[in-house]
Design a protein around this nucleic acid. Structure first.
Lengths: 148, 148
DNA sequence: CTTGTTTGGTGCGATTTCGTATTATATTAG
DNA sequence: CTAATATAATACGAAATCGCACCAAACAAG
């Protein structure tokens, strides 16, 4: 019988917060010196939604201020992982494109992490992870829509 | 048939990262000016594990450098939410205690969020959340143990 | 006891995050 | 067309995070 009191749902978010922290530490330990999780998140995002996004679109996707995204993109650009070029359709904005190096770093990092996950599967029933994925996805979609 | 390829598990952590970000925004919008999620996390932690912890114990629990915890505790202390007192059993360290105000802020915040969750339950089948809680808990315990 | 090592906490500087204000371009109203 | 408003990006400063170095207390070896 599932626990229905509000504190139970609060606990779900607490668990999610802790797991996020632990998984971020795992990710950052595998990134090249100077790159942190937000850098990787942007690379990953650009693959998932297609690159050529504007900085403000990316900032909104991550719910961070546009000034933070300016800074993150500067770091990626300085390392040659993205190209930031003027937007031909709007003189105010720019568009962000992944470079070869950007694609490669993202792919290599995921490959490395996949190997870690493989080891993880010896200790954890991965079908349980697969099972919660749709719930997390729906929760994310709902919360994403709920932000005014 | 659940998706077994490694990228599927990667997606689980991606979803968790996004949900953490969105839920943190919700939390911080309800905290008093100047308090951010880490402050609340410490208050909450001290209730869950009993207060009287040392700063380094708290830092380890959150996987953050001890210098970061010094800073966070300073903020909580300046607002009268915790008392940081010398540790009678070890002259090097201190112990952190919740004040009345600290207990109250934590309780009030949770009460406010519980009301939000209640509204949330009109849009989302909360039994699904309750169902994933044990999986998240076990995953957190496993990852927590796996960090060297 | 004395010395060397470990541990808890903090000072300091570098980087990140983010709010505010500013600039440049686009859009809308008249 | 001109003026007013809105939007994209950045400069700048404040606060947060964190690595490194340091100090003080505890612990261990002799």
């Amino acid at each position: 019988m599932p626990d229905q009191n509000p504190a139970a749902f609060f606990e779900v978010f607490t668990e999610i917060g802790i797991i996020e922290q632990l998984s971020r530490a795992v990710l950052e330990a595998r990134l090249p010196k100077g790159l942190i999780a937000p850098h990787f998140a942007v690379l990953n995002h650009l693959v998932r939604v297609q690159d050529g996004r504007t900085p403000i679109e990316i900032a909104r996707a991550f719910q961070v201020p546009k000034t933070s995204m300016t800074h993150t993109l500067k770091g990626l650009e300085a390392r040659g992982l993205v190209d930031v070029r003027p937007n031909a359709e709007d003189g105010r904005s720019k568009r962000v494109w992944l470079t070869k190096a950007g694609h490669a770093l993202r792919a290599d990092t995921i490959a490395t992490l996949a190997a870690e996950f493989a080891k993880l599967s010896e200790e954890f029933d991965v079908t349980r992870l697969a099972d919660i994925r749709p719930v997390l996805r729906d929760l994310r979609i709902m919360m994403d829509a709920a932000r005014d």
